[in-house]
């Protein structure tokens, strides 16, 4: 199973109660794996820099540097960090924040996975332009 299906399957199993939901740190690393896979597929360097204390945000910044439309998942990444912080800082809200963090990580995996597939298929707002430009040439 590839990185995206495995992440989505693990989160779904947790959300549906078949298994424990992946922990906060594991969810964060899943999101990082998604962005690393994107950068590698784009032939971009994988930075080690953190932004605001999070590697995830550093990875996103690198992805957007080469492709501004990658900012379509900027807030998704920031929400992942935010929900994690809420889960760690506010015990009364921890379970709900943990669940929402999982759902947002799943969205990131679906979005980036979809973008990678569409890069080959074309006709997707964020990734299709290079294909169409090549066709027009």
């Amino acid at each position: 199973m590839g990185v995206f299906p495995a992440i989505i399957a693990a989160i779904d199993a947790g959300l549906e109660g078949r298994e424990d939901l992946p922990g906060l740190d594991r969810l964060l690393s899943m999101a990082e794996e998604v962005l690393v896979a994107w950068l590698v597929a784009q032939g971009q360097p994988v930075p080690r820099d953190e932004v605001e204390g999070f590697w995830l945000l550093g990875l996103h910044r690198q992805g957007a540097r080469a492709n501004p439309s990658f900012n379509a998942c900027r807030e998704t990444c920031r929400e992942i960090v935010f929900r994690r912080n809420v889960a760690l800082l506010y015990p009364d809200e921890a379970d709900h924040a943990h669940k929402l963090m999982a759902m947002v990580v799943k969205h990131l995996a679906l979005f980036v996975g979809g973008k990678l597939e569409q890069t080959g298929l074309g006709e997707f707002c964020c990734s299709a332009r290079p294909l169409h430009v090549a066709e027009a040439d």
């Binding site: 807030e75 998704t76 799943k106 969205h107 979809g114 597939e117 997707f124």
Partner: peptide, 25 residues
């Protein structure tokens, strides 16, 4: 938390299954 997240709208024609998964989420 997903108020500005992608709905997969532009996937609809070429990859409807991804759109469905994004929307379902």
């Amino acid at each position: 938390p997903l108020k500005t997240a992608c709905c997969g709208g532009a996937h609809a024609m070429s990859d409807a299954d991804t759109s469905t998964e994004l929307v379902l989420n």
